[in-house]
Amino acid sequence: MNIVVCVKQVPQEIRINKTKGTLIRDGIKGVINPCDKNAIELAVTLKEKHGGKITLVSMGPKDVENTLTHGLAMGADQAVLICDRVCAGADTLATAFALATVIKKLDDVQLVLCGKETADSGTQHVGPQVAHYLGIPQVTYVVNLLIEGSKIRAKRQLKDEYETVEAGLPALVTVVKGINEPRMPTYLDIYEASKKDTHKWCAEDLGLKEDEVGIQGSPTRITKVFAPEAKRECKMLRGSIEDISSSLANDLKSKGLV
């Protein structure tokens, strides 16, 4: 059973260019999106039980290769990186299209795993959208997953309840953080990983047209980034810590909040 895990590289720390309002990626180290690590961990435990091959699929600049090596060190078998300038600036729809195009090219993929959301944009869109492009069912917010023959049995973590569902394979599953504790690769894992293949494909290799990917393939765009406006009149308390505390305590008491 072959498994694909969609992986995104996210900046280790969030910094904003305060004049342009864009996310600064230059000079900030990229790491695997935390939730995607849970997806990789799940893939590896499933492989240990059911066999098969795990392929990581990602889109981004060349340095995403290091991030993918981390995933390979966790136990994936190979990685594919869609690396092309024309893919830059993609929104979730264009991203999902490119990822799905790669997955269609891989042999006999039975299960596609994604993290529930990314730490940088956090839209939660890509999983369901990849599933749609592949024409397979999606099971989101999964906290436990079993493979039973040609079916999966997944426990979904919803607001007040857990819902257990069955779906036929192939299927796409998005996982929540609580599903497992991702393994940390060992030193030897890291060196083994660097021997595994990371294929870099450009848009042309995948037959992707310029208007299907990147900014052109993205129906949404950000037109403005701005600081949130003050919603309340904030009373700044000044003076010694003792004065501040007692005046605040008095105010809270007089409002009946204490």
Binding site: N66, H70, A73, P185, I190, S194
Partner: peptide
């Protein structure tokens, strides 16, 4: 090297 980049991330983790 690529390995050292990953090693650094893993040790940081």
């Amino acid at each position: 090297t690529k390995e050292q980049e990953v090693l650094k991330n893993v040790v940081r983790e």
